[in-house]
């Protein structure tokens, strides 16, 4: 028992330590490709933290969606677009004092707000929704059963949002350019010898 607890604690500190360290590296690394790779490392460690919490489905989603899609997309953007990140970052330092001040004010406000954190007593009864025990139902099944029943409306609207995003991306970027030479197989096959070959008799000394 004690061994398991200690092991869990070690895992927790390892995961969170690496996550924080790689998050720092994301914003401080000079090479943008390294930044993205550190971002992927941070995502993996966050997934590890989810596994420790017993939320294995969220962990897998994090790896598949964020690492598999988002981070790889970032990597593509970084490597394929010629953006001068050093120049982008040059102005950042001069805004640091203002940014830090705003951040500090927000932080103090948050501490004040959460210091007084209480759920309205009227609602404690309502919020205590039944959560099935882990042994009864895996959380993938639990999420599925709630996502496709209670939240099916939200799920469908989310689908519509993705559709709109797709339409938008196509509408704003797809161009049909003029002067593109496409292969027309029917025309190629239909070509006869007479269309293609012209016999010219050249007399000596006169040229064509």
């Amino acid at each position: 028992m004690a061994v398991a607890t200690v092991l869990q604690a070690i895992c927790f500190y390892a995961f969170s330590g690496i996550a924080v360290a790689s998050a720092v590296m994301v914003i401080s690394a000079r090479n943008p490709v390294h930044s993205v790779l550190f971002l992927i490392l941070a995502f993996f460690n966050a997934a590890g933290l989810f596994v420790l919490l017993g939320a294995e489905f969220l962990a897998m989603i994090l790896v598949i969606v964020y690492v598999g899609a988002v981070a790889v997309l970032f990597l593509f953007v970084v490597m394929m677009l010629d953006i001068n990140f050093v120049a982008l970052r040059q102005g950042a330092l001069q805004y640091l004092p203002v940014g830090a001040l705003v951040g500090l004010i927000l932080f103090v406000e948050l501490v004040l707000v959460f210091g007084a954190w209480t759920i309205s007593p009227e609602l404690t009864a309502a919020s205590g929704a039944a959560t099935p025990a882990l042994t009864e139902m895996s959380n993938t099944a639990a999420l599925g059963s709630i996502l496709y029943t209670k939240y099916v409306y939200v799920f469908q609207v989310a689908g519509l949002i993705l559709l709109v995003a797709m339409i938008g991306a196509i509408v704003l970027t797809l161009r049909s350019r003029d002067g593109v030479r496409r292969q027309k197989i029917a025309q190629q096959v239909g070509r006869r010898r007479e269309d293609a070959v012209e016999v010219v008799k050249v007399r000596p000394g006169q040229g064509i």
Binding site: V154, V157, A158, L160, I161, V164, A165, I167, G168, V171, L172
Partner: peptide
């Protein structure tokens, strides 16, 4: 969710 649906279409 509905707020986002309309906003995204409006941006485009």
């Amino acid at each position: 969710v509905s707020f986002e649906l309309q906003s995204l279409a409006l941006y485009v």
